[in-house]
Design a protein around this nucleic acid. Structure first.
Length: 481
RNA sequence: GUCCCCAUCGACUAGCGGCCCAGGUCACGGCCCUUUCAAGGCCGAAACGGGGGUUCGAAUCCCCCUGGGGACGCCA
């Protein structure tokens, strides 16, 4: 039988990087084995589910390129299926009705916790007499369904990543599979789905390892064979705790909005907890070819944004400039550099030039788009310290002289500009380094940037001449000297 | 409290008994290149948590401790 795997998020929040990595591992495994990648929403918790989160999760997966072959399925639409399967267990005597109320159970749990005991259902309703049951019914109690589990023995989980893990049945109890309102509980719905969907490999986060013996018990009750289990380690924040909002960016969308490329996030996430020798950079194709569950490192990994940025810059430096240029447009708007119409109107060749010029200095698309402000518009913000330090009266004279020298350069290209500038400087008895920074500050307002002449070419003759001529005015403006 | 998982530089990891006085990558420091900032090149600092075993030999196998994480719901 072919490989069938699933990614099963619950729509209670945005897709975060931990979930994305679980999805990625499933997807890679499916692609590698020509299998089927199924998407399923585990949305049986009516209180916490939010329908409006479904589309963003789908969009996050699409953005990452993790397209599903089947689904999305919704557990909320399969309720009758779970009920049927639960009734089957009831009629076979493998499950029983429990009339205990949530309040009664909560009381017992608190008592157990207070006594430093493991909370465990006491089997109160396991063998109710007809009259006892009749009394509960007449009290108006609605029963939940519990699985009747063996009283002793061990359950063995064979995990591809962790090896053999044993659980003592004394640690488990007769857990609820169907709530009193007819909705299935997590563990039950998962197994019914995994069985009916023909899932062959369950690849999910580590935190579910403890659920696995319960689920195995359900497989046993159904008389179904087990899938292969693989529990992937968690992704932790810098402080080694579970990744959460207070740790800054955790959602896939946040990284997209920060200008991280999907291929970079995929590459980084794949290398988090998995490796293939010393290789750091992988194309998706290489990932598919080399991925294997047994090579997944068993320990939790810390999410390191700096390394993500390094990977991102790698893709910035190696991807097609025209393609990257197009990705810049929305950022031009978001960064208030220009209006949407203006951003749309920028020739794609100009954007590609910016990419080529700045990709080695930018970690993200935001950093790549930022220089467009002084490159493509008249908005130049002058850093006071830069003006103070480099636009001295002497330098301003040099720069203004350069303006006149460059006014006639034809064509207005980096190489011609450099030739003309060097000629001008030679005539003035100066070296390039005597004026370069003053010139850069006059043109861009800052001290750091791309090559001076390439920058001039991109800014264009008119603006270059104007900014060089205005150099002294800038100093006056800021320091009132 | 009980159960489960994990443990190599600050981080991601290589290592699956001798090739390791531990290799690569990010970050960090220095030098070179240079009109700035980067990028790039070269160099450097930096780890097998502790204790017992097993073995001729242990980062690698076993046990204990410690530390970190997770689970124990009519949440998922």
């Amino acid at each position: 039988m072919g490989v069938r795997v699933r990614f099963a998020p619950s729509p209670t929040g945005e897709l975060h990087v931990g979930g994305a990595r679980t999805a990625l591992f499933n997807w890679l495994f499916a692609r590698k084995h020509q299998g089927v990648f199924i998407l399923r929403f585990e949305d049986t918790d009516i209180e916490r589910n939010r329908l409006e989160l479904i589309e963003p999760i789908l969009e996050s997966l699409r953005w990452l390129g993790l397209l599903w072959d089947e689904g999305p399925y919704f557990q909320s639409q399969r309720l009758s299926l779970y009920q049927e399967w639960a009734k089957r267990l009831l009629s076979e005597g493998k499950a029983y009705k429990c009339y205990c109320t949530p309040e009664e159970l909560e009381k017992k749990r608190q008592a157990a916790l207070a006594a430093k005991q493991k909370p465990r259902y006491d089997g109160h309703c396991r063998a109710l007499t007809p009259s006892q049951e009749q009394r509960f019914i007449s009290e108006g109690r609605k029963p939940a369904l519990r699985l009747k589990i063996p009283q002793s023995g061990t359950i063995v989980v064979e995990d591809v990543i962790r090896g053999r893990v044993e659980f003592d049945l004394a640690e488990l109890d007769d857990f609820i599979i169907l709530r009193s309102d007819g909705r299935p509980t997590y563990n039950f719905a998962v197994v019914v789905d995994d069985v009916t969907m023909g899932i062959t490999h369950v690849i999910r986060a580590d935190e579910h390892l403890n659920n696995t013996p319960k689920q195995i018990l359900i497989y046993h009750a159904f008389g179904e064979g087990l899938p292969v289990f693989a529990h992937v380690p968690m992704v932790l924040a810098k402080d080694r705790s579970k990744l959460s909002k207070r740790h800054g960016a955790t959602a896939v969308f946040e990284f997209r909005d920060r200008g991280i490329l999907p291929e970079a996030l995929v590459n980084y996430l794949a290398r988090l907890g998995w490796s293939h020798g010393d290789q750091e950079i992988f194309t998706v194709q290489e990932l598919i070819e080399n991925f294997s569950l047994s090579a997944v490192h068993p320990s939790a990994a810390i999410f390191d944004e700096e390394k993500l940025c390094w990977v991102n810059q790698h893709y910035l430096k190696t991807s097609d400039p025209h393609g990257l240029g197009e990705l810049l447009r929305p950022f031009l708007v978001k960064l208030n550099i220009m209006s949407e119409a203006e951003a749309h109107a920028v020739p794609s060749g100009r954007l590609a030039q910016i990419v080529v010029l700045f990709r080695e200095r930018a970690k993200t698309l935001i950093e790549l788009a930022e220089p467009a402000r002084y490159l493509l518009t008249d908005t130049v913000s002058y850093e006071p310290e830069a003006v103070q330090k480099f636009l001295t009266p002497e330098k301003i004279e040099l720069v203004r002289g350069l303006a006149e020298a460059l006014a006639v350069v034809e064509p207005f290209t980096a190489s011609e500009l450099e030739r003309a500038t060097r000629a001008y400087l030679e005539q003035q008895g100066k070296a390039l380094k005597d004026m370069a920074q003053a010139c850069r500050v006059a043109l861009t307002g800052r001290t750091a940037g791309a090559g001076l002449f390439e920058t001039m070419e991109l800014i264009g003759r008119e603006r270059v001449i104007a900014r060089l001529r205005q150099a002294s005015a800038k100093r006056l403006e800021q320091f009132h000297v």
